[in-house]
Nucleic acid binder design. Structure first.
Lengths: 207, 207, 207, 207
DNA sequence: CATGAATGAGTCTTCATTCAT
DNA sequence: GATGAATGAAGACTCATTCAT
């Protein structure tokens, strides 16, 4: 294989690792299996990555990067987030992100349980997202010359637990939910949107 | 250590396992460590449990049992759940349960990622709780002679993703949250209650 | 249980051990299984026997004792072993012994492989039997005033390898043989007698 | 130890395992000991073999293969087996095989005791050999225009129990016998040949 | 870049044996 | 005699990681 393939090989290792980590959990996942399923020699994995942990870190960094990019892009598109019509666009951006990244998100959630490792990725990600969210809400209020009823801490808690977490859990349980309650992806998404609109989104509209 | 106290010994093994599983994750947890920290011989663990997996299953069964008990008790106390005042009582019951069981809940969430094992405990638990919840809401409506706007599937989705999940994530991130955002438990709980009231609970009040 | 049962209990332990040892081999056999199948508490086994090894030794001693008794009895009955008619009686005595003791004989053979333990039971048993056999043959010759063509070593070798071993192997493979070649016990015994008569026994008749 | 020499390494593991299995029995044998004595890392054993059992199976397959080869070769050399002179050649082929393979044969016999595993290797081996034997005897009779007194079942029994088993037991007890009865290998072999000739072989000569 | 072979340090599980009652 | 509980010492198997080519 020529040099051009190097990037492709590394990417294949990463996506295979992501898949396997999400299926059996990081600790249960075997480097051997990643190698086999990616079709590369195990030792080659160690040529590209210092350790199994580094693979995970790489995946996590990618996730955070992608989240950042997603945020920037969707903020650009919808400067006025408290306009009812824009809600749907924002919701779609989030749901799309969460569904696409669901494999690595599952791993992130599972790993966030472990207390030892300081700040979990989910907290990092959460902090990133909820601050962006609050910022953009504030801007929207200011844009309209409205007074932004700031209670920062309550806002943070709300954005995190009733805003972000349902999405994360959507990533986590989407597949199980569909098969257990016999819902199609479309049906589930629609119901989820309705539920989210009536709860979290409703709380954001200025009275 | 009294030889007679088999039940106490078994319970000590279980609670130690619960602690360690929640700290490092089930797969990373070592039976050796459980034995040492519980102050029993490792082989004794295998006298009481067929395998490490069986310990986990026992803990999960206990969790589901406790949830069932909690539901029965709190439903008895608050027959009219859509009465604003009762909300707080119900919320408290849930938040108390979730905080007390947070160790095993963390493990349950982390394990629910693994696709292989069919239905995850969180789904089992979720199904149990959201159905009880919907039932009790319906009863409350009927009690008042109000029409219950049934859309079962949307209701399920709402109860699960915007009702239950925030609580579960509260269990998961409570400690990290407190330390990262420098909030006291009391402050976090209060903010969480406000947020939950404005979102999920608000959606339940009959208009 | 009263004291009368003690002997019975010990016997039950022994016969259960014999059964299990013969089914899975001594090393693979678990004291737990012996206890369960014998319907006694595991610790009770250690009340009667110092160790798992002692159970085996007890069984082996019993085997040697029984062999001795069988020899004495059959020698009494058939003083003239080189008389063709007596052959059958002797053969029957052996075949009966071997079939009845086949469980412990299997264990004895399997254990005789291990070099470490000095003289194996099979060698002990073999020595006992072939010497008795040679003695009785010699007596039969002398009784008839015939010259006994003594070549002790060849005689020993013959009695052991072509006389005794087929019987031992009969014990070992009887069950497998019957099921693999679809022979009834009766058919197999009869064929074995014919084969043994034409080979080993034929060599004993004075020409 | 050349890294390239995978075949040699695997062979060394196998022969070391064969040795240790035959000395202490399969169940008592420790993979650790095999690794140490073979001078390889224990994990390497599991790189080449799925389990301890697979090592044994590999050894057994090899034994059966070797037996097959030995049969073909010796049948080629001695087409007329009922010619007195050829007997010795055949006997030598067998005794040589049995002495050379005695380690794994011991294990095979010890393992054949265990009922669980269906057909034992010894039965498999026995079936192979006695059928080859009977075939070649029949051919020898036909070659001479003699009538072959076929009683297949009796023949099978005879070949197995009075033909093959003495050889197998020779493998099993050769060493113990030599040391207990103070016989040299040569002496024992010679006596065994005489005994075998007078018994089993004698029965084969056409009358 | 790529690979087959090799290794050290686990990690679960087993089991003969003993203890306290 | 009898038993449930407890233990020490292994033993099979695993797996992340490295080496030599």
């Amino acid at each position: 294989m020529n040099k051009r393939d190097a990037t492709e090989t590394k990417a294949r290792i990463l996506s295979t690792a992501e898949k396997i980590f999400s299926e059996v959990g990081f600790d249960k996942a075997r480097v051997d299996d990643v190698a086999n399923e990616a079709g590369v020699n195990k030792a080659l994995i160690y040529y590209y990555f210092k350790s199994k942990d580094e693979i995970l870190e790489t995946l996590f960094s990618g996730l955070v990067e992608d989240a950042r990019r997603m945020l920037v892009k969707s903020m650009e598109k919808t400067p006025d987030v408290i306009n009812g019509d824009n809600y749907k666009a924002l919701f779609d951006a989030y749901i799309h992100f969460v569904m696409e990244k669901r494999k690595i998100l599952k791993v992130a959630i599972a790993e966030s349980v472990k207390t030892s490792s300081g700040l979990s990725v989910v907290m990092e990600l959460g902090n990133l997202i909820i601050n962006a969210e609050i910022d953009s809400i504030r801007k929207a209020y200011e844009l309209k010359g409205l007074h932004f009823p700031e209670n920062k801490k309550e806002m943070l808690v709300m954005e995190f637990f009733t805003g972000l977490m349902p999405f994360l859990c959507f990533a986590l349980f989407k597949d199980q939910w569909e098969s257990y309650y016999h819902m199609s992806e479309k049906e589930l998404c629609e119901n989820f949107y309705q539920a989210f609109k009536k709860t979290h989104l409703a709380a954001h509209l200025p009275r």
